[in-house]
């Protein structure tokens, strides 16, 4: 199985990019399955299934962060895609705090960023960008060429080895270079490993303590003026 993971802030155009990519996968007779991980609601799987007739699935992460959910279910998702006879599994994650990185070793990580989201976005999102293989910049038609160049520079400043692809996905412009990279992806190995270290995930808040203030918690903490410190065993 070859795994392609699409991440990016909400409404940045991930699904539009994916639809255009699948369109070209179909032409090349490459069998793709699609899975969408979202929090409360998603209908992209039905849309894509209807449009292309490929196997699709959705997973609601509910109380979990979507990228956390991705880590927990991805092995079963790969088995599902294999049973469906797909060569490629496309995973679209909703990624919320944008601090995680959903990419798995030997997978192709694609981060989708919208050109209109401000010059500081590449500096704000950390490993979701820096651990990706390709950064697709969408909605390039909405900004000037000069701004595109500066935005691209900011992306490369944050992730110097990333491949930048500028795309106007609505019109299918800039999709071919993405497909070319997807065709080169290698097979994943089991067990699969995340590329990056997720932020510390178990904390007193996660287990249900609701009091505000560092003095009421233990584990990795900080106060307004201090760096991170640790309280506990």
């Amino acid at each position: 199985m070859k795994l392609v993971i699409f991440a990016g802030p909400p409404t940045c155009g991930k699904t539009t990019v994916i639809r255009q990519v699948i369109k070209r996968m179909e032409v090349k007779k490459l069998k793709t399955a699609y899975i969408k991980i979202d929090v409360l609601y998603a209908d992209e799987d039905e849309m894509i299934n209807k449009e292309f007739g490929i196997p699709t699935k959705k997973i609601y992460s509910g109380e979990l962060c979507p990228d956390h959910c991705n880590v927990v279910v991805l092995d079963e998702a790969v088995e599902w895609a294999e049973r469906e006879g797909a060569e490629f599994l496309f995973v679209e994650t909703a990624g919320l705090c944008l601090r995680c990185s959903p990419y798995v070793e030997n997978s192709l990580g694609i981060v989708v960023l919208e050109a209109t989201s401000g010059m500081n976005l590449p500096r704000k999102i950390g490993p979701m960008l820096t651990l990706a293989d390709i950064s697709v910049i969408t909605k390039i038609d909405l900004i000037s060429q000069a701004e595109r160049e500066v935005f691209r520079y900011r992306v490369l400043q944050a992730a110097k080895d990333i491949t930048v692809v500028e795309s106007n996905a609505l019109y299918g412009i800039g999709i071919d270079p993405i497909v070319k990279q997807i065709e080169k992806v290698q097979h994943i190995d089991f067990p699969m490993f995340l590329k990056g270290n997720p932020p510390v995930g178990t904390c007193t808040i996660c287990v249900g303590k609701k009091e505000i203030g560092a003095k009421n918690h233990f584990g990795v903490l900080r106060t307004l003026d201090s760096d991170l410190f640790y309280v506990g065993e």
């Binding site: 401000g118 010059m119 500081n120 909405l142 900004i143 000037s144 060429q145 701004e147 500066v150």
Partner: peptide
């Protein structure tokens, strides 16, 4: 390309 944009979106 000098497009028809009459506003910038860059917060700089």
């Amino acid at each position: 390309l000098i497009s028809q944009h009459t506003n910038f979106l860059s917060d700089l």
